[in-house]
Design a protein around this nucleic acid. Structure first.
Length: 283
DNA sequence: AAATGCTTCAACCGCTGTAGG
DNA sequence: TCCTACAGCGGTTGAAGCATT
């Protein structure tokens, strides 16, 4: 006989998570860690399947998540990594501490894909769509070219570069500006999300000290450091309430200071997930 | 103000590799 | 060795919000 089924799917809740559910899941994980996703909804008093809990934690509740719009540099790095790795979102996400594969995948499908198409590049092969590119260039007289055109050319030449030229890429990314729409249009959503998160943190009776201690101990025992820089997170929201999260949450601030000394950034979420195992706190 | 279309992204679905029984 | 659960992954969906008519 094999294992017990993951969930019978009868009487389980689906759809968007409520604040109460988030609170329950977050409190449980903060205090007990993660050992078996199947057991978590039962132990936490949630009418969800373990898979749903896992997804909610990874994509939304994890305290090290970097919230807010992806930076220009991140976006260009995604393009480069996608050219090298294809649709391997988790691999790509592993290069962006605090970003989830789902987030990057969504960003790719909703923004970058369109951007590349607009630039005359095939989003799958990253090669120019020859006819269209030629045609569009012929249609434009030299006078009609604007700054965006120049910027697009920089991106095209950049994407077509040998992917191994990462160093060149990184420095060149700093000069590439994406569409101005991105910054402002997501501001409202981001602020709302941060406010929700802030409320969750403040209303949750979370043992952050225990959490931080476990993080510290685990990193010592495994030699692994968490992939997290709150400084980076704050940079995403220069005028939002994110900074107030730091101010009102001392453990986070301490964590940020610890994170400042981190050296290695290149590891995946698989490793990240491992650090949430707290064997000493599980029954 | 209402209707319609578009965009975004959280959440689900189904598949795969791995490992337990 | 086989069966099955589990974790993780990528593709897809649909609700909600926003923009346009």
């Amino acid at each position: 006989m094999g294992r017990q089924p993951c969930c019978d799917k009868i009487g389980l809740k689906r759809g968007p998570w409520t604040v109460e559910e988030d609170h329950k899941l977050m409190s449980f994980i903060m205090n007990n860690g993660i050992q078996c996703w199947r057991m978590i909804p039962k132990l936490a008093g949630l009418l969800r399947c373990g898979k749903s809990c896992r997804l909610r934690w990874i994509n939304y509740l994890r305290p090290d998540l970097k919230r807010g719009v992806l930076s220009e540099m991140e976006e260009n790095q995604i393009i480069e990594l996608h050219a090298r790795l294809g649709n391997r979102w988790s691999k790509i996400a592993s290069h962006f501490p605090g970003r989830t594969d789902n987030e990057i995948k969504n960003h790719w499908n909703t923004r970058i894909k369109k951007r590349l198409k607009r630039l005359g590049l095939d989003p799958i092969t990253h090669q120019p769509i020859q006819q269209k590119t030629q045609q569009s260039h012929e249609e434009k007289s030299p006078d009609s070219r604007n700054e965006n055109d120049e910027e697009e050319e920089i991106i095209i030449s950049h994407v077509l570069k040998d992917p191994s030229e990462t160093q060149v890429h990184t420095s060149c990314c700093n000069n590439i500006s994406t569409e101005t729409e991105t910054e402002t249009e997501t501001e409202t959503g981001t602020t709302s999300l941060i406010n929700k998160y802030e409320m969750l943190m403040l209303t949750s009776n979370l043992d952050m000290d225990l959490w931080m201690t476990n993080q510290e101990m685990d990193s010592i025992s495994t030699g692994y450091r968490p992939s997290f820089s709150l400084e980076d997170s704050v940079n995403c929201y220069p005028n939002s309430s994110a900074s107030s999260i730091l101010e009102t949450s001392a453990p986070f601030h301490e964590f940020a200071e610890t994170a400042d000394s981190m050296v290695s950034w290149d590891f995946g979420f698989n490793q990240f997930d491992q650090q949430f195992l707290f064997p000493d706190t599980m029954g």
